[in-house]
Amino acid sequence: MRRTTAVGLALVLQASVLQGCSPSATPPPATPQPALAASPALPAAEGGPGTASPAPSSAGPCTIFPADNVWHADVSRLPVSRDSAAWVASIGAAAHAHPDFGTASGIPVTNVPAGQARVKVTFAYAGESDPGPYPIPRNARVEGGATAGGDRHVIVQDTAACKAYELYAASVQPDGSWKAGSGAVYDLRGNALRTSGWTSADAAGLPILPGLPRAEEAAAGRIDHAIRFTAPKTRKAFVWPARHAASEATDAALPPMGARFRLKASVDIAKYPPQARAVAQALKTYGAILADNGSPWYFTGTEDAKWSNTQLDALKALKGSDFEAVDASLLMVDPNSARCRAG
Rank of each mutant, 00 (worst) to 15 (best):
4 T>W: 08
5 T>Y: 07
7 V>S: 09
8 G>E: 00
9 L>D: 11
10 A>L: 07
11 L>S: 12
11 L>F: 00
12 V>R: 15
16 S>V: 06
18 L>H: 14
19 Q>H: 14
23 P>A: 11
25 A>K: 11
28 P>L: 06
29 P>S: 13
33 Q>G: 10
40 P>W: 04
40 P>T: 11
48 G>P: 00
49 P>S: 11
51 T>V: 13
52 A>L: 15
56 P>F: 08
58 S>T: 14
62 C>W: 14
66 P>K: 07
68 D>Y: 05
70 V>L: 09
72 H>F: 03
73 A>P: 02
73 A>I: 02
78 L>R: 10
79 P>H: 06
81 S>W: 01
89 A>D: 14
93 A>Q: 06
93 A>D: 11
94 A>H: 12
95 A>L: 12
96 H>C: 07
98 H>M: 12
99 P>Y: 03
100 D>Y: 06
103 T>V: 13
106 G>F: 09
107 I>D: 02
108 P>L: 02
114 A>F: 06
118 R>E: 12
118 R>G: 03
124 A>L: 14
126 A>V: 05
127 G>V: 08
127 G>Y: 13
129 S>T: 07
129 S>F: 00
131 P>M: 05
132 G>C: 05
133 P>E: 00
137 P>T: 05
138 R>E: 01
140 A>H: 01
141 R>S: 13
141 R>E: 14
141 R>L: 14
142 V>C: 04
146 A>C: 09
146 A>S: 12
146 A>N: 11
146 A>Q: 13
147 T>W: 05
148 A>M: 04
148 A>F: 03
149 G>A: 09
151 D>G: 13
152 R>Q: 00
152 R>W: 03
154 V>Q: 01
155 I>K: 02
156 V>D: 00
157 Q>W: 14
157 Q>H: 15
159 T>C: 11
161 A>Y: 03
165 Y>T: 00
166 E>R: 00
170 A>P: 00
171 S>F: 08
172 V>P: 07
172 V>M: 10
174 P>E: 08
178 W>P: 01
184 A>N: 13
189 R>Y: 01
192 A>M: 01
193 L>F: 07
197 G>R: 09
199 T>P: 04
199 T>M: 12
203 A>K: 05
204 A>Y: 04
204 A>C: 10
205 G>T: 03
208 I>V: 13
211 G>F: 08
213 P>T: 08
217 E>G: 09
220 A>I: 11
224 D>P: 14
225 H>L: 00
225 H>G: 04
226 A>K: 03
227 I>K: 05
227 I>F: 11
228 R>N: 08
228 R>D: 11
229 F>A: 06
240 W>G: 05
241 P>N: 10
242 A>Y: 00
244 H>M: 01
245 A>F: 02
245 A>M: 06
247 S>E: 02
251 D>P: 06
253 A>M: 15
259 A>D: 07
259 A>H: 01
259 A>C: 05
264 K>C: 08
265 A>E: 14
266 S>V: 02
268 D>V: 09
269 I>W: 04
275 Q>I: 09
279 V>W: 07
280 A>D: 09
284 K>W: 08
284 K>P: 08
292 D>G: 05
297 W>G: 01
300 T>I: 12
302 T>K: 03
305 A>I: 12
306 K>S: 13
309 N>I: 09
316 K>G: 10
316 K>L: 06
317 A>Y: 09
319 K>P: 02
321 S>F: 10
328 A>L: 08
328 A>K: 00
330 L>E: 08
335 P>F: 11
341 R>Q: 15
342 A>I: 12
